[in-house]
Design a protein around this nucleic acid. Sequence first.
DNA 1: ACCTGAACACCGTTCAAGT
DNA 2: ACCTGAACACCGTTCAAGT
Lengths: 224, 224
Amino acid sequence: MSRHRIVLAAIDLIDAEGVTAVTMRRLGAALDVEAMSLYRYVNGREDLLEAVVDALVDTIEIPTVGHLQPVDGWQGFLQVLAHDVRRLAAEHPAAFPLIATRHPAAPWLRPPLRSLRVVEGFLEGLMARGFTDAQAVEAYRAFTSFLLGHLLLEAAMRGAEMSPVEEPLDEGDADLPNRDEELSLRDFPSVERLRDALTEDHADDEFEKALEHLLVRLDLEHAQ
Amino acid sequence: MSRHRIVLAAIDLIDAEGVTAVTMRRLGAALDVEAMSLYRYVNGREDLLEAVVDALVDTIEIPTVGHLQPVDGWQGFLQVLAHDVRRLAAEHPAAFPLIATRHPAAPWLRPPLRSLRVVEGFLEGLMARGFTDAQAVEAYRAFTSFLLGHLLLEAAMRGAEMSPVEEPLDEGDADLPNRDEELSLRDFPSVERLRDALTEDHADDEFEKALEHLLVRLDLEHAQ
DNA sequence: ACCTGAACACCGTTCAAGT
DNA sequence: ACCTGAACACCGTTCAAGT
């Protein structure tokens, strides 16, 4: 038994059944131990969830010269990093709200880049590629907001909550409106007319396009 | 007693002590009633939280000609709407994570604009100001991602969780690093050097700048 | 050193019973 | 029609006791 094993089991439980399934008792059972044993390694449930967030954020890799062409510059650096954070969100959609909403340990850590290692790598990566201090800090702010908005929305749409795993699936496809929803839709003609367009999943395009645009925006401030 | 009264009391409780303080028993006590009485008006705790989210989103006002100069156009429409959603986040920082992370009832509702009324108003507002169907839908996607990223980050930084209201405030200012944090900061020289810049609160500027830039981006797609 | 049984306070929820 | 007492299953957490 170890703190690390407990955290890994908690992540598995979150991935499989959502955050609400992580109780000390169920987690103990998953590790073939009583709930009280966990308190040797973890300062209660809140501390455990904090450790889960830290472990997940620790899987973010800061792009190195190995991942990049020299010609890519800071744009390539941010592109690769953005996609790695998106990978994290895609691998753990049910855990991402935790990463997004637990309030950071220090005011200079902004979700989802909420570890000193990652922030340090971010700032150094940009400054090594020509950013001033102020530009790097501004880029950090803009980059975290961008990631949070897009990735949390993707996770939420994916039904990340997953709390009611045992939702009593009534007849019919859940994405098809039942009679009640159809009735209310009728009062909102634009939504009704654009329903299909609104329902289409453009997560990939959206992410790429918004990232592209963020880079343009940062370039304007970088050049001046 | 009424469903509405219960929802209002729940919002007060969230604002004062965070979402975790909203238990059926405590909410009942706040209304001078036993917890079981609430089940007459609410289908359990999850349904209650859903109603809280709906009530808060319902306070979003779709800008009308009364709020706007005719010269403002769609940019003014989105500016006013963005600030009204930001007002909501500022008034209920502890509730905003709920708005942000609870998964929407329909796939065409994206947080934080997660009501048919608001989406209808959004789409009609843009189309009345010259957007095509496709442009309005794309704007909806980009606008919601923008709002979510910026407002959730603001709420999180404000210590929105607030779960441990009874945190055992040890000596010293919580924003000043204690000895442990100082020690670990030493291993991250760029963060240490830029600590003050990273800690500064630029939420207003950030929001305005990112909004401005979003409008520029939408203008490019609108014009073409 | 590590795990557990028993206990406590609190929780969501149901339902028969009160008024 | 509306509220409640009692009950059940489950929860986080503590601590003395086991091995």
